[in-house]
Simulated scan of single mutants.
Amino acid sequence: MSELVSTGVEGLDSILTGGITERSTVLVSGNPGTGKSIFGIQYLHHGATEHGERGIYVSFEEDEADIRAAAESVGLNQFGELVDDGEVVILDKREMLRETDFSTAVDKLLDTLEGESFDRLVLDSLSMFQLFFSDEQEERTYLLKFSDILKSNGLTSLLINEQGAVFPDTEVGLENFLTDGNIYFIQTPTDSGVNRYVWVAKMRKQDIDTDIFPMDIGEGGITVHERAGGFSMMSQSDEPSF
């Protein structure tokens, strides 16, 4: 039986019946501001502080200073120390976008992995990563190759994906087929701000709870609450019935 990797998010591991299957690649989707990057930071922070697992944060969108600041904004102040100590390695946009081809970006990652031991990886974001490819066939080929590289190096990975819709899109994209699991972060506007939700739509080789659960972002990062949304699927045109 495969080992499970704890996400470090209170409530989410319960939905996942313990965590994410070791060496799997999980797609984390949502529109901007839903907490995807905070989830990635929290995932690496938890691995390093609670399990002695080293992590890599690969960002095509932010500088290292921005990532450190995001961690501090939710009280994960130890994250910067983990980076300083090499327990979490950040490959930011200055390094990853220095060249404009896929091979160079992957070589940078492989150079980091060579001779080192890492357990967790976050890629932020897949949307920018896909700009390397000119057509769907090339994208499929290289995403499969990239996923194989991550697994062969023993990494349990989160691939962050930006989507424009508020609700999960019913159109299944190429990346959904090439990952082992899909987690969606959702937010809906209210008179006083926003309501936030998480939906684990798919996780291969695992029994999961596919309801939509409320969550919030506060001191310490993301917390997922037990009260379910009462439905398992919705499209952009559906009215929420929480």
Rank of each mutant, 00 (worst) to 15 (best):
D135I: 04
Q78F: 03
V89E: 14
E62L: 13
K36I: 03
T21R: 15
P32D: 02
N182L: 14
L44H: 12
R54C: 11
L158N: 10
E239L: 00
G47S: 07
N31L: 00
L121A: 14
G11C: 09
E50R: 15
S127Q: 10
M96N: 11
Q187G: 02
I217M: 13
L150H: 07
V194H: 11
E61C: 09
Q137W: 05
E136C: 01
L109V: 06
T190C: 07
E99L: 14
K151W: 04
T170Q: 11
N195P: 01
D124A: 08
E226M: 11
S37A: 10
M203T: 05
K202S: 10
T21A: 12
E226I: 09
V9Q: 11
R120Q: 02
S117R: 14
V26S: 06
V166I: 13
V106S: 07
T25Q: 03
D211A: 12
F60K: 06
D101N: 15
L16T: 08
T179Q: 02
R23N: 14
S73N: 09
Y43W: 09
D207Y: 06
E239R: 05
R98D: 08
R204Y: 03
D180N: 12
F133Q: 11
D84K: 15
S117Q: 15
D66P: 05
G19H: 02
F118E: 08
H51Q: 13
F146H: 04
D211W: 08
N153Q: 11
M215F: 04
Y142W: 07
S134T: 14
Y184L: 07
E162A: 07
K151G: 06
Y142T: 03
D135P: 13
E114C: 02
F79E: 13
G218L: 05
F118G: 05
L109I: 12
V198D: 10
V106W: 06
G181L: 03
D92W: 00
A165F: 08
L174Y: 00
D92E: 00
V26R: 05
R94G: 15
I20Q: 05
L91G: 09
D101F: 04
N161T: 02
F231H: 13
R227C: 04
M128I: 10
K36W: 00
R54T: 12
L144T: 03
V26K: 08
D63V: 10
G154E: 15
E226D: 11
N176K: 04
D66E: 15
E87C: 02
H51E: 10
D85I: 02
D107G: 01
D111C: 08
D238S: 13
G86K: 07
F79Q: 13
L44I: 06
E139V: 01
V26M: 03
I160D: 09
D101Y: 09
K93V: 01
Q163N: 03
S2C: 05
Q206T: 14
N153E: 13
M203R: 03
L178N: 02
R54Y: 13
S125Q: 02
G75Q: 00
V198K: 10
E239V: 00
F231I: 12
L91V: 04
